[in-house]
Simulated scan of single mutants.
Amino acid sequence: MLDLAPWAWILLGLAALLAGLGKTAIPGSGTLVVVMMAAVLPARTSTAATLLLFIVGDVFALIAYRRHAHWPTLLRLAPAVVAGLVAGFLFLAWSDDAMVRRTIAVILLAMIAITLWRRRRARSTTVGRTAAVGYGTLAGFTTMVANSGGPVMSMYFLATRTPVKVFLGTSAWFFAIVNLAKVPFLAGIGLITPSVLLADLVLAPLVVAGALIGIRLAKRMPQHLFDRMVIVLTIAGSLYLLF
């Protein structure tokens, strides 16, 4: 990884900056980070490298928003997320990269359509138990196969019209827990190598910079602008994965 061309390091640096920004201000940008990392690195290597950068961002997200989490939501989603993680692991065992990318893209676009439809039909912030199970399972599935659980969770929080800080606080705890749980699996199959660790060490300061910028940005961001940015970035990342 350390022998990459200068343009590749520039793209990785931008991805690291977005990883931090996404953790503290714009969750939908996480999909773009996954896409940019996979464009430079081999698919399996990018999964490990991206995960470690996201964990650095999780630290700052927790520092900034840990008190704003809505724990009943996390507990409500937990069983479905675990089921999704297991399903994602099994899916990876027999699918190829192309199938994984397209499956995730279709799921994300479907979730966006369903969320927007629900928001137009009613003002209620209640999401039924069945819907919550669906969101949780898909979040666990997509985060296991491609570190792309963020958009699904974003759609869930948008569906419930969650305020910005509660959105960010609940997401911070959710992904901090899930991402740490994934580390032993990736280490066990040999994806977390010394070269991955060294490259992420070089990129980590940019994650920190992005997180700090995001904290200041989130304080000034209106709810409607936040919602639109999440939707637009999720659609953009999904279309890239699909095509």
Rank of each mutant, 00 (worst) to 15 (best):
W94N: 01
T170N: 06
K182D: 06
F167A: 05
G57I: 06
L180D: 08
A80E: 05
L158W: 07
R123K: 11
F60R: 00
H70C: 09
T142D: 03
V196P: 04
V183R: 04
V183P: 10
I213N: 00
I112K: 04
P184V: 13
G20T: 12
L138T: 12
R121C: 09
V152R: 02
A16D: 08
V106T: 14
L197K: 02
A69Y: 02
A211D: 07
D200E: 14
A122W: 00
L233G: 02
A49E: 06
G13Y: 08
G88L: 04
P194H: 11
V166N: 14
V152Q: 02
Y240H: 13
K165Q: 14
L77M: 12
A19R: 01
L4S: 11
R101E: 08
R120N: 13
V164D: 01
T137G: 15
L203R: 03
I107C: 08
W7I: 14
V133M: 13
L217G: 02
A19Q: 05
L92V: 07
I192Q: 05
S95M: 09
T160Q: 12
I114L: 14
I112L: 15
A39Q: 08
R66T: 09
L212D: 00
N147S: 12
L53F: 07
G150N: 11
A172R: 07
V133T: 12
L108P: 00
M1N: 08
G134N: 08
M36C: 05
F226A: 02
L239M: 10
R67G: 13
L116I: 11
G214R: 03
T24Q: 13
A87Y: 06
M37H: 10
L206V: 12
R216S: 10
T31Q: 11
T170A: 06
R118P: 11
L241M: 15
A64L: 05
V207G: 03
A64W: 04
L53Y: 07
R216N: 07
R120D: 10
H224R: 14
L180G: 03
L18T: 10
L77K: 01
T115C: 08
L32F: 05
L53E: 06
R161F: 13
W71G: 01
F175Q: 01
G13C: 13
I177P: 02
G190Y: 07
